[in-house]
Amino acid sequence: MAYKIIVIENILSVNFVREQALLEKPKLDGQIKLLTVGRFCYPKAFDLAVRICAGLVDKGVPVKWYAIGYGDEKPILDAIKEYNMQEHFIILGKRTNPYPYIAACNIYIQPSRYEGKAVTVREAQIIGKPVVITAFNTSESQLKNGFDGLIVPMNIEDAVSGIKTLIEDKSLQDKFRENMSARDYGNSKEVELVYKLIP
Score class of each variant (00 low, 15 high):
Met154Lys: 14
Arg183Gln: 15
Ala45His: 07
Leu172His: 06
Ser13Thr: 05
Ile11Cys: 11
Phe40Arg: 05
Tyr185Arg: 10
Gly69Ser: 08
Ser171Ile: 00
Ile156Cys: 11
Pro98Ile: 04
Arg183Ala: 13
Ile163Ala: 02
Glu73Ala: 10
Asn187Ala: 10
Arg39Tyr: 01
Leu12His: 09
Val132Phe: 06
Asp169His: 00
Gly116Ser: 13
Val57His: 00
Tyr114Arg: 11
Val119Ala: 12
Asn155Cys: 08
Ile151Trp: 05
Lys175Trp: 00
Ser161Arg: 08
Ala135Ile: 03
Lys27Gln: 14
Leu56Cys: 01
Ile127Val: 09
Leu34Glu: 04
Phe16Asp: 12
Thr165Gly: 03
Glu190Thr: 06
Thr165Phe: 08
Asp169Ile: 00
Leu35Thr: 06
Cys41Ala: 13
Ile91Met: 15
Arg18Trp: 00
Asn187Phe: 11
Val63Tyr: 05
Ala45Cys: 00
Trp65Thr: 01
Pro111Leu: 14
Ile109Tyr: 02
Ile102Leu: 15
Gly60Tyr: 05
Ile76Lys: 03
Val63Glu: 02
Ile11Glu: 07
Ser188Asp: 09
Val63Trp: 08
Lys33Ser: 04
Phe89Asp: 06
Ala118Leu: 11
Pro153Lys: 05
Lys27Met: 13
Gln125Pro: 05
Ser161Trp: 02
Arg113Cys: 06
Ala124Pro: 03
Ile11Ala: 12
Ala118Gln: 01
Ala79Val: 09
Val7Gly: 14
Pro75Cys: 02
Val191Cys: 11
Arg122Val: 13
Pro26Leu: 09
Lys25Asn: 15
Pro75Phe: 10
Asp174Phe: 04
Thr138Lys: 10
Pro100Thr: 11
Gly30Tyr: 06
Ile126Gln: 02
Thr134Asp: 06
Leu143Ser: 01
Ala124Asn: 02
Asn15Thr: 14
Tyr66Leu: 03
Gly146Ser: 01
Ile76Met: 15
Ser13Val: 01
Pro153Gly: 05
Gly128His: 01
Ile156His: 06
Asp184Trp: 00
Arg39Lys: 14
Lys144Met: 10
Leu172Arg: 05
Leu143Tyr: 08
Asp148Trp: 03
Pro75Gln: 03
Val119His: 06
Tyr66Val: 02
Lys33Gln: 10
Arg51Tyr: 07
Phe40Ser: 04
Ile156Lys: 11
Lys129Cys: 03
Glu178Tyr: 10
Phe136Asp: 00
Tyr108Asp: 01
Phe16Tyr: 11
Pro199Glu: 14
Gly93Asn: 10
Val194Thr: 12
Ile6Glu: 14
Pro62Lys: 04
Thr134Gly: 00
Lys27Trp: 09
Arg113Glu: 15
Tyr99Met: 13
Val131Ser: 00
Leu35Cys: 05
Glu140Cys: 08
Arg122Phe: 14
Lys129Glu: 05
Asn15Tyr: 12
Ile5Phe: 09
Lys189Asp: 12
Tyr185Phe: 15
Lys144Arg: 13
Lys81His: 15
Met85Pro: 02
Val152Ile: 06
Leu22Lys: 14
Ile11Arg: 09
Gly162Gln: 03
Leu48Gln: 11
Lys64Ile: 14
Ala182Lys: 15
Cys105His: 02
Ile8Leu: 14
Phe89Pro: 01
Lys27Ala: 11
Tyr66His: 05
Lys196Ile: 10
Pro26Val: 09
Thr96Tyr: 13
Thr120Trp: 01
Tyr101Pro: 03
Lys33Val: 09
Pro153His: 03
Arg183Met: 13
Gln31Ala: 12
Glu140His: 09
Asp184Tyr: 11
Tyr185Ala: 05
Ile167Trp: 03
Val61Asn: 09
Asn106Cys: 08
Tyr42Met: 07
